[in-house]
Design a binder for these strands. Structure first.
Lengths: 300, 300
DNA sequence: TTGCTCCTCACGTCACGTGAGGTGGC
DNA sequence: TTGCTCCTCACGTCACGTGAGGTGGC
């Protein structure tokens, strides 16, 4: 009742709990963890301001969405949305894993042996490990993209010795690759451009590429005009001065110098037959493209 | 090395850990929890038999699939698959919830306010609560069916006072409804018949019913023969002596006497506009059916 | 005796829940 | 003084991880 006053708007923990739907204990816990620091009166009572309540509401939502307490601070003080994007992709990885596990539960019910399931589980865990590391190794948009791109090819377990070795090689490459960091202004640029790029859109991109790879010649014919425009744009000074050009260059340098083509890609081919097939298609499409446009020596 | 002998095949904890991929601590923990009781030597050392190892492997798989330790015992000693089915549905409920949460994370990234999300989260939690209780209230197949059937209609939050009251009424009904237990032989029968009925098939059933409800007259025309056969089967003595008949009768009695039609269904209509629409369609379809077959006074 | 395994406490983790015991305000 | 809130320990949860300290076998 004392808090109906709209101007003062500060309250003790009971009122804060009622307004946010959190328990007192949860609120004190968040205070202990440093997520918020309400002012205290002389008697030690906490006084929660309007902003504290807003913060508590945000914390409550994030907790319910599954964000760990020690991951909340970055999200709250994050204006670019980068932290949220990372969470979003991690959530997607987790969901894929759970989906796969549900499928295994079905198989178990259908009479599969525990032994079969062990293999399948290993594949699921490996997949998640690699995805996690891809997300770490590449900044912002590229992390999300590679993560979803390569995840498709990691659904089978590493059965043979060679596959297991390849898997270890992949992990090692991703853990030890030189850190790829864009200069701050390029980071901001990329973040701005790509922040509205959802996981679904990335999936669409991937599906598109698959269409292309199936019939590269047809694709090149059908999109002749667009390709021409893109090629002439790439020649232009405007492009060469744009941040996109610099980002592309940094990526190319990284891939050339880090051992991406010498270690990572061959290991992927060894580990995953489906990736090997994909890589072959990619090379064929590239060849078709070079035939059509002999002056280009691009790679993707 | 000492354990290469195929006949003796018993080992201490280190070897057991190597063979199962579990840690020693995990194994001792499962022993403490009573999931297995390896024999012990005089010096207190545990001796793991072949069966112990099999059990540990099973436990390992189940743990990785997300089954809690205190839920594992029923699964291990469950020959009918009932325990696994329950887990499977719970997993499906959980996945739906996580999926919804991922969607909310996307909305948050897209600039949604925490306030909007609070409402949406409430809906998700409510949905899961009701689903959980439906699974509890109805035995085996019916639990799974009702769970997935009604879950579709609970995606919106309870906004108005009336909706919130309806939600409370639903929870109260499900918590306090008289326990619906089939006699053991009917349970076994149902379990046998329905154990291979996956969540996907239930979803298919639901989709089928939706088709029917859209154009009941067409459906009745198209499936004239099948309906006739079904109706004459229902009249037959063979049907009246079958367990199916008894199960149906028990379900009908339960629904008539428990307040299902007086409390639960009206509350669902109040809470969920989409369920209200569905119920209307259902009544229309029923009417169409009765017009066609005036002697039947069935309800579904 | 040395180095190895095995054993059983005991404490830590994560995000709070649940009292217990004490103080402050009216 | 009574009944209320607030405060800070302290212990419990779940499924183990991580030593510590002690025993047994070769």
């Amino acid at each position: 009742m004392a808090y109906d006053n709209h101007e003062v708007m500060s309250m003790q923990i009971h009122e804060a709990a009622v307004r946010t739907g959190l328990t007192k204990k949860a609120i004190t816990y968040y205070c202990e963890q440093g997520l918020l620091s309400p002012s205290t009166l002389e008697n030690g009572y906490r006084e929660f301001s309007r902003q504290d309540i807003d913060k508590l509401n945000a914390i409550s939502v994030l907790r319910k969405l599954g964000v760990a307490v020690n991951e909340i601070q970055p999200v709250l003080s994050d204006s670019t949305g980068e932290a949220l994007q990372r969470l979003s992709v991690r959530m997607e990885i987790k969901l894929q894993r759970e989906q796969a596990k549900k499928e295994l539960l079905r198989k178990l019910r259908a009479g599969a042996s525990y032994k079969e399931l062990q293999k399948a589980l290993e594949a699921i865990e490996n997949n998640a490990e690699v995805a996690q590391r891809l997300l770490q190794a590449f900044p912002s948009f590229y992390g999300r993209f590679f993560c979803l791109h390569f995840a498709r090819f990691l659904q089978q377990p590493a059965v043979t010795e060679r596959q297991q070795a390849a898997y270890r090689q992949i992990i090692e490459f991703l853990d030890n690759a030189p850190e790829l960091q864009f200069p701050i202004e390029l980071q901001d640029y990329l973040q701005n451009i790509m922040q509205d790029f959802s996981e679904e859109q990335i999936h669409d991109m991937i599906a598109n590429t698959q269409e292309l790879l199936k019939q590269p010649d047809k694709y090149i014919r059908d999109h002749h005009d667009a390709i021409e425009r893109y090629r002439s744009f790439k020649q232009s000074g405007a492009y060469r001065r744009s941040p996109v050009f610099q980002i592309q260059k940094l990526m190319k340098d990284f891939m050339a110098s880090s051992g991406y083509y010498e270690n990572f890609i061959p290991a992927m081919k060894e580990l995953s037959p489906s990736y090997a097939a994909y890589a072959k298609q990619l090379e064929a499409a590239n060849a078709a493209f070079v035939t059509q446009y002999p002056d280009s020596a691009s790679q993707d």
